[in-house]
């Protein structure tokens, strides 16, 4: 995996993902013991986030620091040369000459792939446009493995914005690398999965069903992945208002659910995930966010050192 660009979740094989997860287990136990590791001492990571981020950026930076490395961060637009009109290609060339690995998030689709074509060092996609967020999918799958001991053979529900949400799409594509029993794609019709995603599920032989009702399938689910309906992805604000709040997951909505149902959410949440779930056995989303650090530590280590 050394030197590998991380652009899409399907750019990884199942074996490679399992290697990341095994390494994440090692990182997690090292973190539990406290202190910092020195595995990436002397290495520099550049974070170039052209879109807002809390967890992704901070957990990458934390991961690098915990491994004994350091990071440089591209300043906000108004404080950098981009305010003078510098393009992405030149920005990436500069970061590539300063750092050993670049993590990029960009609103433009294909920005990470373009950056990877320019940069000599590996590029990690921290989310581009409405399509890919591969490291989030790794964390999500890892959380399932930690919570239920396996990823295969489970029934999944993926709920919310399946059309514009890159985290949901990447999670669904990530599942296609494993052998889920069934995947329910739960969304209002205007936010249903795009055709290319469904085609990929079919090619990989994943059993799936599209539905607009959580209540109809809740009792079957082992994992419920909830995503935010993202306002910024709607070209038309009235469309956003129509679906906002219509897919709220609360204790009431989970009536009839399995005892061990695992609820995941890439966060941040708006009003799709009620606070009354937070202290229940179903709430895995804060643990999921915490796993962002060991999983990204594992990935950085494997990419930079093998």
């Amino acid at each position: 995996m050394r030197g590998k660009d991380v652009l899409t979740i399907t750019g990884f094989s199942r074996d490679e993902l399992e290697r990341v997860f095994d390494e994440a287990d090692i990182m997690l136990s090292a973190l539990d013991k406290g202190g910092s590791l020195r595995i990436l001492e002397g290495y520099v990571m550049a974070t170039a986030f052209f879109e807002p981020s809390t967890r992704t950026k901070l957990s990458f930076q934390t991961a690098m620091l915990r491994l004994g490395g350091s990071y440089i961060d591209l300043p906000p637009e108004e404080a950098s040369s981009r305010a003078k009109g510098e393009n992405l290609a030149d920005t990436i060339r500069m970061l590539d000459s300063y750092a050993d690995v670049i993590v990029i998030r960009h609103r433009v689709e294909g920005a990470a792939r373009f950056a990877a074509e320019i940069a000599v060092h590996p590029v990690i996609n921290g989310g581009d446009g409405t399509r890919d967020h591969p490291t989030q999918a790794m964390i999500d799958l890892y959380t399932v493995r930690k919570a239920l001991g396996k990823i295969d053979g489970l029934t999944y529900g993926v709920l919310g914005d399946l059309k514009y949400g890159r985290a949901a799409r990447s999670f669904i594509l990530g599942l296609s690398l494993f052998k889920p029993k069934k995947v329910y794609l739960i969304s209002p019709p205007q936010l249903a999965c795009r055709l290319d995603t469904l085609q990929l599920l079919e090619e990989k032989g994943v059993v799936y069903e599209e539905t607009s009702s959580l209540a109809g399938v809740i009792s079957e689910l082992d994992v419920l992945y909830v995503t935010r309906i993202q306002r910024e992805r709607f070209p038309d604000p009235t469309e956003y208002e129509k679906v906002r709040g219509s897919y709220k997951v609360s204790m009431e909505a989970l009536k009839g659910a399995k005892e061990r149902l695992v609820v995941l959410h890439p966060l941040p949440r708006v009003d799709e995930l009620a606070f009354d779930l937070d202290n229940t056995r179903h709430a895995w989303y804060f643990t999921q966010a915490a796993f962002g650090v060991p999983v990204r530590m594992a990935l950085l280590k494997l990419i930079l050192k093998g």
Partner: peptide, 14 residues
Amino acid sequence: ANPNCITNQPREPV
């Protein structure tokens, strides 16, 4: 056909 594709961004050598 996607206006938000990197290949449709002005001033990027792609």
